[in-house]
Write a protein that binds this DNA or RNA. Structure first.
Length: 480
DNA sequence: TTTTGAGTTGTTCGA
DNA sequence: GTCGAACAACTCAAA
């Protein structure tokens, strides 16, 4: 029996349904929980600002849960290989357990670490806790990775049902001597001067119990009307589990089983439509795993020739929610304030950046990476490429969102726009999504002067649409 | 090997 | 106001 085992926490910041933790407990010795802030280990994608804020909160609550279970969470920073080496020396641990990450840099780093540990006779085992199925386990009949979602989803549904989630372990045994730990506050994960995180604090409860609460709330209320409600950014129609899933505060298996169990009193269509979204999460990880350049390079290589028109001023207007299109601006301000944006609005705002402004999708990807609390390499990269048309199973080139039409269709009462663009709040519904078309007296009555209180559109959508279609045409013409 | 049906989320135009 | 078709071919995945 080993004296002690290291449990290396990564994107699995929970005690329930945690296979690596279960294995460390089953080994029979003491458990030393360790989190490593490994900023080099993330390759081109060091943590963004919103992610750092979330991580602080999640580690603080994990520390408390572990303390209640009888052990102290050890915090260290530096290259993971070095830190693990150091901690093994400082303790009598003889084994290291972790749950797998699937980002290319993490895969390379972890493979190396596992080899090194085993070469020295240290037990090193990794587990799946972040996905319903391993990315290499779902294949076409030819044995190749899927490139289209629908057949991928079909193959996923033909797999055995994901294993039922495991309960959290009972009390953990503490080791005789603990390695030193950094202080969480010393890591500087929280923003100061200025502290821009007020809106994040108001919107989220990072940590395992916050995740469980969100799931329960979702199943109690929004799940019933999910197929339609999920498209209404003015209401709570989605699960908002994305940051919790990203950090592994809840597992997709837990979500799958809880939602599927609701099928007894909620329509199959609603349940199936939500499970399908979990399927998309699987699919994006599958794509990143098999195409590790996904975050940097267009998945369809011909898009390397796309005539993008980078423009720092237009990019800044988009980032600040000052494009003059209320639906886009509302979304970008929601993002800045809460660290999250409704899915429907993400598509509208992303389509505007890429197709109306012709700004490279990588610029949008980078901004989302920094500002989203759910920033996830696979989801972010695959989704931006989907909108841009360069991705797997992507939107066809002629699918260009009309920010006015989308606003009128999905925010018809204007709840969403009025919340985030208060300077337009007094405009009537029929012009709220297109204030530049409002009669002068309507604007005056609503106390809006375009160009002073709210910008005129930074680009005319109709012309921008024609320009985008022409840009895609040029791609085809040069393909010979 | 060849064939066949299908492919997350849209918009616009004309009948 | 509503409806269907066009918007471009192309690639994927399975039969």
């Amino acid at each position: 029996m080993p004296k002690a085992a290291l449990l290396w926490f990564r994107q699995d910041l929970r005690l329930a349904d945690n296979p690596a933790l279960a294995a460390a407990v089953a080994a029979g010795g003491a458990v030393i929980p360790l989190y490593i802030l490994d900023e080099q280990g993330m390759g081109n994608w060091p943590l963004g600002g919103a992610s750092r804020w979330w991580l602080h909160g999640s580690l603080a609550t994990l520390t408390l849960s572990l303390a209640r279970a009888g052990v102290r969470l050890v915090l260290r920073r530096g290259p993971a290989a070095t830190v693990i080496e150091d901690v093994l020396k400082e303790t009598d641990a003889e084994a290291v357990y972790w749950n797998r990450c699937y980002e290319p840099a993490a895969v390379a780093r972890d493979r190396h670490i596992k080899q090194q540990l085993r070469a020295r006779g240290v037990t090193a085992e990794s587990f799946n806790s972040a996905l319903l199925f391993e990315p290499w386990s779902i294949k076409t009949g030819q044995g190749t990775p899927f490139k289209v979602f629908t057949p991928f989803w079909g193959a996923l549904r033909r797999q055995p049902t994901p294993a039922a989630p495991m309960p959290p372990p009972p009390r953990l045994r503490a080791p005789e001597s603990m390695p030193r730990s950094d202080a969480l506050d010393g890591w500087g994960l929280l923003p100061q001067r200025p502290d821009w995180a007020g809106g994040l604090r108001d919107s989220w409860v990072p940590g395992e119990s916050g995740a469980r609460q969100r799931l329960a709330d979702f199943i109690d209320s929004a799940l019933r009307d999910y197929p339609a409600g999920r498209d209404r950014p003015g209401q709570v129609g989605t699960s908002r589990l994305s940051p919790h899933l990203h950090w592994g505060e809840i597992s997709p298996r837990q979500v799958w089983h809880a939602v599927a169990a609701a099928a007894s009193h909620i329509s199959d269509a609603a349940v199936e439509s939500y499970l399908r979204e979990l399927g998309w999460r699987e699919f994006t990880h599958h794509l990143l795993f098999h195409w590790p350049a996904l975050p940097e390079e267009p998945w369809r290589p011909e898009f390397a020739r796309f005539p993008w028109q980078p423009d720092a001023k237009l990019l800044a207007a988009w980032q600040r929610g000052q494009t003059g299109y209320p639906m886009v601006d509302a979304g970008m301000r929601e993002l800045w304030h809460t660290g999250w944006m409704h899915n429907r609005v993400r598509m509208i705002a992303a389509s505007f950046l890429v197709k109306d402004l012709l700004i490279p999708w990588q610029e949008g990807e980078a901004w989302f990476w920094d500002t989203l609390v759910d920033a996830d390499l696979a989801q972010n990269a695959a989704s931006w490429q989907w909108v841009a048309g360069s991705g797997a199973d992507a939107a066809p080139f002629f699918r260009i969102f009309n920010p006015v039409g989308q606003g009128e269709r999905f925010d018809p009462r204007g709840d969403f726009v009025r919340r985030w663009v208060p300077e337009l709040a007094r405009l009537p519904d029929d012009v709220l999504h297109k204030p530049w078309l409002a009669p002068a007296e309507t604007l005056q009555a609503a106390d809006v002067a375009l160009g002073r209180d709210y910008p005129a559109p930074i680009i005319a959508h109709g012309e921008a649409r024609q320009r985008a279609l022409a840009a895609f045409q040029s791609l085809k013409a040069t393909a010979e």
